[in-house]
Simulated scan of single mutants.
Amino acid sequence: MFVQTQDTPNPNSLKFLPGVQVVLESETMDFPTLSSAQCSPLAKLLFRIEGVKSVFLGPDFITITKIDEETDWKTIKAEVFATIMDFFTSGLPVVNEGINQPDNGNEEDNDTVLMIKELLDSRIRPTVQEDGGDLVFKGFKDGIVYLKLQGSCTSCPSSMVTLKNGVQNMLQFYIPEVIAVEQVLEDELDKKAKEELEKFENTLPK
């Protein structure tokens, strides 16, 4: 097995391509913490590597995000290479049987929501996955589309630019009902980051 690497827009995230299918086509799985990775033997092994902050599984790639800029990729890459090669040689399942990704479909979705999801799946998500990440539709209310960023996008400095200039512009072009696109912050780390941002904003002159 020959594992290749590919840079992402996020300097703290690196995309590893093992040359085999990782998860089902068009599916992705995001593991921001070790506790969230209990369903994936591969992700659990990758979390054992010192310096690994999060693991993201795409159809044919694995995105590793390191803890901080001070952590050297050279020390992490060798262990990630070895772990990936050993794992796929072992024949173990990437994800334990019976674990399914949540279905974004909803029988009550109206035409606008269905159009938003179709555009995300066909035009936007494949591009985002090329950069080692993904985005998940979380809702549409009062003209605002709510999306959750995953993988390399989570802590990427340019993620908000991607949301506003890329995703928002495309959705507005095809769907007049869309006014804006907002990022959803869900886990505790995201909430803490949002609180810190609000504290900082409160210190700025009005």
Rank of each mutant, 00 (worst) to 15 (best):
M160H: 13
S152E: 10
N100F: 14
R123S: 04
C39K: 11
L135I: 15
A82N: 12
V113Y: 09
G51Y: 02
E97S: 13
G51N: 04
G105Q: 13
D134C: 01
V136T: 15
T154H: 04
N110W: 06
K148F: 06
S159Y: 09
L135A: 09
F137Y: 15
K74I: 11
V161H: 05
S158K: 13
F87T: 07
L42M: 08
V128Q: 06
K53N: 11
W73L: 13
E50Y: 03
E118A: 08
F137A: 03
Q150K: 15
V113S: 08
I144V: 15
D134A: 08
Q129F: 00
G151R: 12
G98P: 09
I62F: 03
G143T: 05
T162Y: 05
F56P: 03
P32R: 12
E107F: 03
K164Y: 02
S35Q: 12
D131Q: 10
Q38R: 11
P59R: 01
I124W: 04
T33L: 09
L42I: 03
V161P: 00
D134V: 02
E79Q: 15
K117R: 10
F47M: 05
L119D: 03
D68Q: 02
P157T: 09
F31R: 09
L42C: 02
G91N: 10
V80N: 12
P157M: 08
S54R: 15
D30N: 15
F88A: 05
L92I: 01
E50W: 01
G105C: 02
F31Y: 15
I76A: 03
Q150G: 06
N110C: 10
V55N: 08
F140K: 02
K117F: 03
L163D: 01
T127G: 02
K77C: 10
K148L: 15
L34A: 14
I49A: 03
D121G: 01
P32K: 12
T63V: 07
M29Y: 11
E130D: 12
G91I: 09
G132N: 05
S36M: 07
L135V: 14
G91E: 10
Y146Q: 11
V80T: 13
N110D: 15
N110Q: 11
I49Y: 07
P93Y: 10
L120I: 12
F137T: 06
W73D: 08
T162V: 11
P41T: 04
T33H: 14
N165Q: 10
N110R: 07
I49G: 01
R48F: 01
C39P: 00
K66W: 00
T75W: 04
D109R: 06
L42D: 05
F140G: 00
L42V: 03
E70S: 11
K77H: 07
M29R: 14
L119M: 14
E108D: 13
P157I: 08
C153H: 06
L46D: 09
G98E: 08
K117H: 01
V80L: 10
K44H: 00
E79Y: 06
T71Q: 11
V80H: 11
G105F: 10
I64V: 13
D86V: 00
N100L: 13
F61Y: 14
S54Y: 08
M115V: 00
A82H: 09
K117D: 05
R125G: 00
V128H: 04
I76V: 15
F47I: 03
K148E: 15
L114P: 00
P93T: 12
M115R: 14
A78S: 14
F140L: 01
P93C: 10
